[in-house]
Every structure is written in C-alpha cells, then in structure tokens.
Amino acid sequence: SKTSNTIRVFLPNKQRTVVNVRNGMSLHDCLMKALKVRG
C-alpha cells in the first residue's frame, strides 16, 4: 500500500492548504508544488 502523509500548512491571510507528501519527495518540493498550484 502506498503511504502518503498529509500535512496542513497554514499560510498568511488565514489561508490554509493541505500538502500530500509522497515517498521520494521532500517536504520542500511538495510545498513549492502546492504553492505554485495556489499561486
């Protein structure tokens, strides 16, 4: 089974995003990807 960790990230202006960290990806990469999608 694939394991994925879901991390809630609290952003300024009362924004919130959820990042799924996959195996083999660093938290930083996942964060940058999530913020790019939002931006």
Score class of each variant (00 low, 15 high):
Ser1Ile: 14
Ser1Arg: 13
Ser1Thr: 14
Ser1Cys: 15
Ser1Leu: 14
Ser1Gln: 13
Lys2Gln: 08
Lys2Met: 13
Lys2Glu: 04
Lys2Arg: 11
Lys2Gly: 12
Lys2Thr: 07
Thr3Asn: 08
Ser4Thr: 15
Ser4Gly: 12
Ser4Ile: 13
Ser4Arg: 15
Ser4Val: 10
Asn5His: 08
Asn5Gly: 10
Asn5Lys: 08
Thr6Lys: 02
Thr6Ser: 05
Thr6Met: 13
Thr6Leu: 14
Ile7Asn: 01
Ile7Thr: 02
Ile7Phe: 06
Arg8Cys: 02
Arg8Gly: 03
Val9Thr: 10
Val9Ala: 15
Val9Glu: 00
Phe10Cys: 03
Phe10Val: 03
Phe10His: 08
Leu11Pro: 00
Pro12Leu: 02
Pro12Met: 10
Pro12Gln: 03
Asn13Thr: 07
Asn13His: 11
Asn13Gly: 07
Asn13Tyr: 14
Asn13Asp: 08
Asn13Ser: 05
Asn13Cys: 12
Lys14Trp: 10
Lys14Ile: 06
Lys14Glu: 09
Lys14Gln: 09
Gln15Leu: 00
Gln15Lys: 06
Gln15Pro: 02
Arg16Leu: 03
Arg16Gly: 02
Arg16Ser: 04
Thr17Phe: 10
Thr17Arg: 10
Thr17Ala: 03
Thr17Pro: 01
Thr17Ile: 01
Thr17Asn: 04
Val18Ala: 03
Val18Gly: 01
Val18Glu: 07
Val18Thr: 07
Val19Thr: 08
Val19Leu: 14
Val19Gly: 02
Val19Phe: 08
Val19Ala: 09
Val19Asp: 00
Val19Glu: 10
Asn20Ser: 08
Asn20Asp: 03
Asn20Thr: 06
Asn20Glu: 10
Val21Met: 03
Val21Leu: 05
Val21Ser: 10
Val21Ile: 10
Val21Ala: 13
Val21Gly: 06
Val21Glu: 01
Arg22Phe: 07
Arg22Leu: 05
Arg22His: 08
Arg22Pro: 12
Arg22Gly: 06
Asn23Ile: 09
Asn23Lys: 13
Asn23Ser: 13
Asn23His: 12
Asn23Asp: 13
Gly24Tyr: 10
Met25Arg: 15
Met25Leu: 15
Met25Lys: 15
Ser26Thr: 11
Ser26Asp: 06
Ser26Asn: 08
Ser26Ile: 07
Leu27Pro: 00
Leu27Met: 05
His28Cys: 14
His28Arg: 12
Asp29Tyr: 06
Asp29Glu: 09
Asp29Gly: 09
Asp29Val: 07
Asp29His: 06
Cys30Trp: 02
Cys30Ser: 14
Cys30Tyr: 00
Cys30Arg: 01
Cys30Phe: 07
Leu31Pro: 00
Leu31Thr: 10
Leu31Ala: 10
Leu31Gln: 00
Met32Thr: 13
Met32Ser: 10
Met32Arg: 09
Met32Val: 08
Lys33Met: 10
Lys33Thr: 03
Lys33Asn: 01
Lys33Ile: 00
Ala34Ser: 10
Ala34Glu: 06
Ala34Pro: 14
Ala34Val: 02
Leu35Met: 14
Leu35Pro: 00
Leu35Arg: 01
Lys36Asp: 10
Lys36Arg: 13
Lys36Gln: 07
Lys36Thr: 08
Val37Leu: 12
Val37Ala: 04
Arg38Gly: 02
Arg38Gln: 10
Arg38His: 01
Gly39Arg: 04
Gly39Val: 04
Gly39Glu: 05
Gly39Cys: 10
